[in-house]
Amino acid sequence: GAKVLACPLNSCPVAPASRSSQEVWESFSQCFTPAVKEVVEFAKSIPGFQTLSQHDQVMLLKSGTFQVLMVRFCSLFDPKERTVTFLNGQTYSLGSLRALGMGSLLDSMFDFSEKLGSLGLEPDEMALFMAVVLVSADRSGIVEVGAVEQLQENLIKALRSLITSRRPDDSTLFPKLLLRLPDLRTLNNQHSDKLLAFRIDP
């Protein structure tokens, strides 16, 4: 009867059965809200982001926040040990997380973390990549598509320039990085399905 929300941001992934779904959700919300606010602050620091209309800023953040968080918290996933360290400091094995109902989403997250981690990005490269991730989010609901495309183009150019100038002998890194964008889209969809399942059938 325990209610499970096995998200690394959740400080109490397994709640006692006595707690209502609403209470479990509100407690989880308090855990993810600071992380979401940090993504908004990060977005505001992206040169050009605040020149977009507020409506489009909200749309990009709505569809891109999870993806940015996935990149940011990639290091919580240890593909070698097959463990995930939650923000509450507790480390869970792959087996125990499977038992908590994390199946294909978890596999995809490990896969993504391993691929991104293998690229060995520097912190500033990672930040620029997260900016690209955010402005590459789902365009549904975007009004000024041209302005978003222009910003995306500028950020991709900046990322390519940074990476190729640092590693002139490795022409494969930048394309490999761009290939992670569709992975993140897929992860985003899987994650949304998981959350909706909790909300519909708690």
């Binding site: 606010k37 908004v40 605040q50 909200v58 953040l61 926040t65 949304s192 909706l196 909300r199």
Partner: peptide
């Protein structure tokens, strides 16, 4: 339930965080 971000309260958090910024700039 077609829009998870709205239903999860994410949109509210985002709007408030962005609007906070507008208020900061006005100050």
């Amino acid at each position: 339930f077609s829009d998870p971000a709205s239903n999860l309260g994410l949109e509210d958090i985002i709007r408030k965080a962005l609007m906070g910024n507008l208020e900061d700039r006005q100050e």
